[in-house]
């Protein structure tokens, strides 16, 4: 998968409540509506201006907090192509895989990337290309790469159960 866009850079401990506020978790279910409130409590400019293929960059513990998978899926619906962080919170990382949203770990890339700059990612090659150079990220473990490749957990499960 190739991803091309602009960087939206934020800090450490970006939590699920600012990615997708708890008060909406039972009431906002339409993907277009979800896209509109992505990052609402963190950066009101984001949802208005994000373009397809843009990349969110965070520091450590990205996605900490709730198990709500809308914190990952709302980004996907908003057009986000990938999230790069130094480390990811566990459930958020799982949710990204389950939705086929690349969650890439590279501390070097995070330090080098600037808000607003252009970025290109090649998930097969494991490469992040930006102004500061080329950075690599570790591949997904072989046991779960199938989920990602199938486009997420639900399509993967359908295939497994022969329901495709």
């Amino acid at each position: 998968m190739k991803i091309k866009g602009k960087v939206w850079k934020y800090g450490n401990d970006i939590n699920t409540d600012v990615l997708f506020p708890g008060k909406y978790t039972y009431t906002v279910t339409d993907s277009k509506e979800m896209a509109k409130i992505a990052l609402e409590d963190l950066d009101p400019e984001f949802a208005k201006n994000v373009q397809k293929g843009d990349v969110i960059v965070g520091g450590t513990n990205f996605g900490c907090g709730s198990s709500r998978e809308q914190a990952a899926s709302c980004l996907l619906y908003a057009g986000v192509g990938a999230v790069i962080a130094k480390t990811f919170a566990r459930i958020f990382f799982r949710n990204c895989i389950n939705f086929g949203l690349p969650a890439l770990t590279s501390a070097e890339a995070v330090d080098a990337l600037k808000h607003g700059e252009s970025i290109e990612i090649d998930t097969e090659k494991g490469e992040i290309r930006c102004k500061a150079g080329v950075f690599s990220f570790p591949p997904l473990p072989k046991e779960i790469v199938g989920i990602f490749d199938a486009g997420g957990l639900i399509p993967y499960t359908k295939k497994q159960l022969g329901l495709e």
Binding site: S67, I91, L153
Partner: peptide, 20 residues
């Protein structure tokens, strides 16, 4: 351990989940 909604739906469908 906590998991996501889709993972719970898959447990309903086939009773299993991957864990590291």
């Amino acid at each position: 351990a906590g998991i996501g909604r889709s993972e719970m739906a898959v447990i309903m469908a086939r009773g299993k989940i991957w864990l590291r």
